[in-house]
């Protein structure tokens, strides 16, 4: 059934596309462009990544529509599945909540970029419009033996050297990534005793670092503990969150809570007093 459908669609793709495909193109194409624009203009990297993933899935659909079945699947599995997940990992590492300012810092950069982009796009479209693209052969013949088989035949014959070289490239990239991220430990790890001695010698923070959170309601790791005078102490939050600037300051909230508590208790105490008076 699916083979028949495929044959049907490919035969139709000779000079013009079916109405269904046109419908699909206009709907999904619009979504893809919006996704691309969101990728560029979203403040948070996570949102950008999700929009890009959406655009990529739509592209996968277009691949399928163009008879590139293998590439369509690979697009979903490799790109959307693996590469975008890799992106998300890094985004999480860098800080998922950190929002970028979209304010331009380099003078004239935005206008130049838009001008160049506009000019480039117009020229590209002009080039496409100018090209002689009257012939439109369709993939019916090429895909007759099956798309994957056709690709395999080409990869292992005509493009075998390129294929081998991409293998070498991947290995190199893997090794490179390891080299770049790996940190060699150049000295012995300090023992607990040495750390304690070092702390005493530095005479800055003799006791262990205080625990985060204040009161039972706010013991989250990203909330600084309050000092006796009510000011938050950043020492209580771990270094990674401090570096990211992801400390939640709840000191005002806590004081507000305290005030509300006192008021409530006063109200209750007042009521109890009145009840007592009434009882008398």
């Amino acid at each position: 059934m699916s083979a028949q459908l495929a044959a049907h669609s490919t035969s139709l793709a000779a000079y013009s596309t079916s109405t269904g495909e046109a419908f699909q193109f206009w709907i999904l194409g619009t979504v893809a462009v919006i996704g691309a624009l969101c990728t560029v203009f979203m403040k948070k990297a996570v949102h950008s990544a999700l929009c890009l993933a959406g655009t990529m899935i739509i592209l996968a659909v277009f691949y399928l529509a163009n008879g590139a079945y293998f590439l369509g699947i690979v697009q979903v599995v490799v790109y959307t599945g693996a590469i975008m997940m890799l992106f998300l990992f890094v985004v999480m590492l860098v800080g998922v909540t950190a929002a970028d300012s979209l304010k331009e810092t380099i003078k004239g950069q935005r206008w130049l970029a838009l001008l160049c982009g506009l000019g480039f796009g117009i020229l590209l479209c002009a080039g496409i419009g100018n090209a002689s693209l009257s012939e439109f052969n369709g993939l019916a013949q090429a895909n007759s033996g099956g798309n994957v088989e056709g690709l395999a035949a080409l990869i292992f014959t005509k493009y075998v050297f390129a294929f081998e070289i991409t293998g070498a490239l991947l290995i190199t990239a893997a090794v490179g990534a390891m080299v770049l991220t790996h940190r060699e430990r150049t000295e012995r790890a300090k023992t607990q005793r040495e750390l304690a001695e070092e702390r005493v010698r530095a005479n800055k923070q003799l006791p262990p670092l205080p625990a985060p959170g204040v009161y039972a309601r706010h013991n989250a790791v990203d909330i600084a503990g309050l000092l006796p005078d009510g000011t938050p102490s950043e020492l209580t939050v771990i270094k990674t969150l401090r570096d990211r600037g992801q400390i939640r300051d709840v000191s005002n909230e806590a004081i507000k809570d305290l005030k509300a508590l006192e008021q409530r208790s006063e109200e209750r105490l007042g009521r109890e007093e009145r009840e007592e008076e009434a009882a008398k």
Binding site: I106, L112, F120, G127
Partner: peptide
């Protein structure tokens, strides 16, 4: 200015000019 983005703009502009030149030649 040391900003990679500025250099990228000039590259992009250069690419645009190349396309323009190609079209003109055609």
């Amino acid at each position: 200015n040391g900003y990679a983005r500025s250099y990228a703009v000039s590259m992009f502009g250069g690419a645009a000019i190349l396309i323009a030149a190609t079209l003109l030649m055609r």
